[in-house]
Design a binder for these strands. Sequence first.
DNA 1: GGGAAGTGTTGATATATATCAATGCCATTC
DNA 2: GAATGGCATTGATATATATCAACACTTCCC
Lengths: 190, 190
Amino acid sequence: MFSELEKNLRQHITLTTDEFDRVKRYFVPKKLRRKQFMLEASDVCTRMAFVSKGALFSYSTSEKGSINVVQFAFESWWMADLYSFFTEEPSKLYIEALEDSELLLLKADRLQPLLADVPAMETYLRILYQNAYVALQRRLEETIGLTAEQRYLRFMERDGRLLLRVPQHMIASYLGVTPETLSRIRKQVS
Amino acid sequence: MFSELEKNLRQHITLTTDEFDRVKRYFVPKKLRRKQFMLEASDVCTRMAFVSKGALFSYSTSEKGSINVVQFAFESWWMADLYSFFTEEPSKLYIEALEDSELLLLKADRLQPLLADVPAMETYLRILYQNAYVALQRRLEETIGLTAEQRYLRFMERDGRLLLRVPQHMIASYLGVTPETLSRIRKQVS
DNA sequence: GGGAAGTGTTGATATATATCAATGCCATTC
DNA sequence: GAATGGCATTGATATATATCAACACTTCCC
């Protein structure tokens, strides 16, 4: 249950067996069935989730009911609305299970105690945010600077395998185009 | 010269006088005249800059020579291409002084020693990345989910004062529209 | 002082992408 | 196994925004 987490932590920091045993105690396992929610808009996001199995995705909704996919999270990825998590303001996002999933939850009020208990986790979190930041910056640059077709091609190079697990209209939303447009782009490209 | 930095650090972490004296030693002051570069594309970004006076902005260029503004940084903001900084890959960004500026530079190879010397800085950096991340996420959501006019209005609410120090066509680029479109939006709105 | 460069505006037109609508295809479920 | 709902595709049309071009205004400098 914790092996994915352990592997991921050890990729970035060194931990003694004893330290990792302590780390584990700050997490709460949770299973989620497909279409169940980890977070609903207007709630405060009080937990970060480490995905040990399955997949989640987060999205916001427009006035007209359409959805905007913000992020996907598969095995060994983290998911949360960090904005709400840190500011404690109500989230504008939904976080939903794309597949039956197993999560390890870290509650906001357990974060500081964890960092005090195992200081190396401070480094891990910094690296985590670093990586999240640079991924987001690249995505923003692509969204602003590239056409829909170019964005699709970049996406395929990097995350093409996601098409096996994610419906196409969600990819479209993630890329910032309509499902129809993505369909036409795919036809064009092939 | 260091007072802006001290103020900013102490907003997020507690430091003894001795600790801050040590922190200072890791930074190199640097002045930049308007239009001078702190970073040019294809160079590796080896330094993070704390802006103690003036203003910087970063941008990428398209094949056609047009520019895409990624970020502005005024007094007490940080500026770098974090992607290049952490991966040590050549940057795709230019970082240029918008005004005559005074910077405090932290070189990449001084970061680890600093964090080892003053562990509270690890917390500071985590908070810095946290904030940078949530700001970026909000911007991405707005870029994908809102029309140009809505983006402009949000921008004005939050950062309207920037118009006093930044040419309008750079704001346009930051918002992801052409200068002509921004001009028309402003006329419309007023 | 006068040219040059940078800046913002306005108009005419072009284009990428959205929207609306219809169709077919699976997969699920009762 | 018929019915239902989610999903991808295709066509016709609409719309937001870009592009191209011209013009005025300021500011920078030689």
